[in-house]
Design a protein around this nucleic acid. Structure first.
Length: 271
DNA sequence: ACTGGCTCCTGAGGGC
DNA sequence: TGCCCTCAGGAGCCAG
């Protein structure tokens, strides 16, 4: 399940193969993704050269001179660089054939992912324009979280997973960050103190940074653009650790549903 | 303005 | 061996 570190890992993996490359052909075997693949992309992308491979939140941005292709990997999306002519397999929905003989292939078993197209500045695309700060950028801090949480009764865990607050904190890293900051995921966001939000912001930065360093988390089926699994799963303290002993105090890790998501925490360490 | 619930989708895993 | 049920979840969307 790609979260921000996984998307960043994919970005770094595919960028060297894409930058400066011309798209010679696009093959869409399954246009019904989260949203239909736009006709404007199918018409507009062939012949264009990728000027960069960027990331905003969990969106991968592939700018060209006439427009920007936007990938989202959803739950199960994969992007891989293959040789042209590699036989396609189940759920291989889209190929972007490149001038040098490589092919960028999008595979997405559950089709929660998307491929979009914009001719404007990508940050003005409706899906991107209201996003909160990147967790590893200057604009993100404990003070920012504290300010945005004023008066909010929503539990702190779904609060930090809201992309208008901060982007890229998915379910795994929300659980892990709250554990590291010793904050119960059930607390109303508006009741978490500034000092606690400082700890939480620091935990989010460290955990996401470390996860990127480790190449993402492989739970089930994540692999990078070059097909390498991630290694961060070996460092998970609470996520998917139900009934296992807490690494800090030995208490059994608890689990509940919060906003329709599985939430893991230590009821003794996290208050 | 917030909040919770629904929805898309497929495959894994458990029970019988 | 096979069938059916539940669960997993990113994130937009909508009703209250």
């Amino acid at each position: 399940m790609p979260e921000l570190p996984e998307v960043e890992t994919v970005r770094r993996g595919i960028a060297p193969y894409l930058i400066g490359q011309q798209v010679v052909r696009i093959v869409v075997r399954q246009p019904r993704l989260r949203w239909p693949v736009p006709k404007e992309l199918i018409m507009g992308l062939p012949g264009q050269v990728f000027q960069g491979v960027e990331r905003r939140a969990k969106y991968l941005l592939l700018p060209t001179d006439v427009g920007t292709a936007i990938f989202h990997l959803g739950m199960t999306g994969r992007l891989r660089i293959l040789s042209a002519g590699t036989p396609y397999e189940k759920h291989d929905h889209i190929d972007l054939a490149l001038a040098d003989g490589h092919c960028l292939r999008f595979n997405d078993r559950r089709r929660f992912g998307a491929l979009l197209w914009t001719t404007e500045a990508p940050e003005r695309h409706p899906l991107l324009q209201a996003l909160g700060p990147e967790p590893l950028d200057e604009g993100f801090s404990g003070a920012w979280l504290h300010q945005r949480a004023q008066g909010r009764k929503l539990a702190v865990k779904p609060f930090i997973m809201d992309h208008h607050i901060v982007v890229g904190v998915g379910n795994i890293y929300a659980c892990e960050s709250l554990f590291a900051a010793r904050i119960s995921p059930l607390r109303p966001a508006g009741q978490v103190t500034l000092a606690e939000y400082e700890r939480l912001a620091q935990a989010i930065r460290e955990i996401l940074g470390e996860a990127i360093h480790q190449g993402g988390t492989t739970l089930r089926d994540f692999v990078s653009g070059e097909g390498q699994p991630g290694y961060f799963q070996q460092q998970l303290c609470v996520y998917a650790c139900y009934r296992r002993p807490c690494r800090i105090c030995g208490e059994s890790i608890d689990r509940c549903r919060l906003g329709q998501r599985s939430t893991y925490y230590c009821s003794r360490c996290q208050r």
